[in-house]
Nucleic acid binder design. Structure first.
Lengths: 198, 198
DNA sequence: GTCTATAATACGATAGAC
DNA sequence: GTCTATCGTATTATAGAC
């Protein structure tokens, strides 16, 4: 590679996707932000915006997957890892003035219904993160299914699958139940039938 | 009111925001979907797209708040209400072919960084839902703070506040902890070996 | 409140020279 | 790989008649 123009484009794109999503981001603004010439756009991404977005998503997916894996490797206790990962993300969000969220989430929400190839890639990104998190949690002795269930619970519409939402509902349910039995001992705990179905 | 053109516009806008977000939705497509004449656009929303979006967000916020409140009113047990609300949303998502998500979330993710008035409205919408949910949970005896904490945990970047993310982290932590102690008590760990994992 | 017409701009995408 | 220039279209937004 003679220079790093393509990488600058992808990096700038990831940043813009974080704060503006896919349809909110113009290619001209992107090239500007990357300090890349406009002509490089279609030189590196001859198939246009969609191809460029696909490569940005792949880049972001791999980047975060590595970050997650490292988080779990660095700490023997997965609970510590989860804490560190969350507070780390909070730090990033704060430092950006609450601008930089999750690039996959933004793109999912404004393209899942309209641009099928991108929706698919978003779904794959989330799936890979779930596998990484499930593996990390799995080390602590939670069985595989429960670990995946926990890891899935933030997953969005990108997967074209209702289980993420259902699992979120179950976890909310359990959290409430836990808070109930913690703070109000006078109340008889709920029947196991509802909470135990997982 | 002679006719209901404005309401049709707002309803169509809410639907489009669900599936395409703010920047992904064109005003002409919106007017078309609403079967409203193009001229009505700037007749009812003289300040343009931003004003229209603001009114759509207010409409959606009120609509969902009512839905939540009714959900809690209809069922004495807030746990039942949570279950019903989640499975209801899953039903909607499924029926739309996984197209229709949360209109506030979509708009938040692609405008929170760029259109301050809309970001503010999104934040207010989430805040009102949190109050409604906290009230619903509160009836079961959970104290106010715990109820608010639980209700907040899905909140996004719209609030320009890190507590939602931090609270999510805490709840994930607790969920894992709970799963851990459940596993150890109720079943032998690792029925399937890690090598057998797909 | 609705009509037709259009301005002004941004967008994604191409062309051809170097 | 980069340059300049532009095409066609879609966008948001206005103007003025009825």
């Amino acid at each position: 590679m003679a220079n790093d123009t393509k990488e600058r484009l992808i990096r700038a794109g990831e940043a813009l996707f974080r704060s503006q999503g896919y349809s909110g981001t113009g290619l001209k603004q992107l090239a500007d932000d990357a300090r890349a010439p406009w002509s490089s756009m279609y030189h590196f991404f001859p198939d246009g915006k969609e191809q460029m977005a696909a490569e940005i998503l792949d880049y972001a997916a791999a980047y975060y997957a590595r970050m997650l894996a490292r988080g779990f490797e660095a700490r023997p206790d997965p609970l510590d890892a989860i804490d560190a990962i969350f507070t780390g993300e909070v730090e990033i969000l704060k430092r950006s003035g609450y601008r930089d969220g999750c690039p996959i989430a933004s793109v999912t929400l404004d393209t899942a219904s309209t641009v099928e190839p991108l929706r698919k890639r978003c779904g794959e990104a989330f799936a890979s993160w779930i596998r990484t998190i499930a593996e990390g949690i799995g080390r602590s002795g939670v069985d595989e299914e429960a670990a995946t269930e926990l890891a899935t619970f933030v997953l969005s519409r990108a997967s074209k699958n209702a289980t993420p939402l259902l699992r979120t509902g179950r976890i909310v349910h359990q959290a409430i139940e836990a808070a109930l039995s913690n703070t109000k001992k006078t109340r008889p705990p709920h029947k196991r039938t509802r909470a135990a179905r997982r």
